[in-house]
Amino acid sequence: MDPLEEQRVISAVLDGDADAYAMLVNRYQQPIFNMIYRMTGSREDAADLAQDAFIRAYEQLYRFHEGKKFFPWLYTIALNHTRNFLRKNKTGRTVAIDDCELHTNSDHASQEEDKICALLDCQRIQGALTRLSWEYREAVILRYREELPMEDVATALSISLSGAKMRVHRGLKKLREILETNDDGNRNAS
């Protein structure tokens, strides 16, 4: 959905077309659900919290400044809602890394090998991400997984632009350290 189309959808929702909100939910449910899952480690909690976040965003949509980007605003609502949930329940966990699935329906050996390498890379990077604090992890994911500009990362995390740059930079640095430590450990073990 391009920004113009997104603005049209938001205008339609604000004009009373609740069904149009489905387009926004369908567009952003995956990153929101995954962000909450990364923070809670529970699919059930992630589903409930994502639903609450979308409902809350709808209720507050009349306060949204039309013309601004919807996703960072939604992300902030979902993030704050999840943090409140974790504060009350104190059940925050890190996600398991077995969500990198290997689809082995290919007959070609070389493709199979590529997929295994990709799987290992995926497990390696996800394992490292789980060891980052949520502040650094979300900054890195927003910047490189969602490919948001720094301004939007700052908006989504409710921090300044320089703060966002710092978090992304330090997050990457810490991630690199974790990966190097893991690689050293694996080499020593073998």
């Binding site: 699919r43 589903a47 995926c122 997984r145």
Partner: peptide, 20 residues
């Protein structure tokens, strides 16, 4: 690049209908 390629979990099918 590796972060960009990390897969996402699919949200529950009923998420959007329940929100609506």
């Amino acid at each position: 690049r590796q972060i960009r390629q990390t897969p996402y979990l699919d949200p529950p099918v009923m998420l959007a209908p329940s929100v609506l």
